[in-house]
Amino acid sequence: MAKELKFSASHEWAELDGKTAVIGVTDYAAELMGDIVFVELPAVGSRIKAGATFANIESVKAVSEVFSPVTGIVTAVNLSLNDSPELINRDAFAAYLIKADVEALEDGLMTESEYNKLKH
């Protein structure tokens, strides 16, 4: 089955591959947040819920919550963000936050072209 890229209205992306997903924030969100200084990630094995906060991203003068586009279990976190949170600023699609086993998707996830329309 082909991989599928989906977007949420709260500026997260999820690359879906069957029952697994790789999840991050969009370049648009990264630009809004400015220089990212710290990423607080969930523990591997923890439950995430579609539409609920699963991570926090800090810039110098702001904290942004990251909302999960899926319901499921965290299977991996991107440890390189601990030392280099700026990877998200550099390439938000390469710098994933977590990988998860997916039980359900958030309602209303968009395709790339739908999302691009929304942000303009």
């Binding site: 200084v37 710290f38 800090e58 810039s59 110098v60 003068k61 702001a62 904290v63």
Partner: peptide, 12 residues
């Protein structure tokens, strides 16, 4: 590390 503090995080 001001993102910890009340003027940014408010009720959180």
């Amino acid at each position: 590390l001001q993102a910890r503090e009340q003027h940014i995080r408010r009720e959180k």
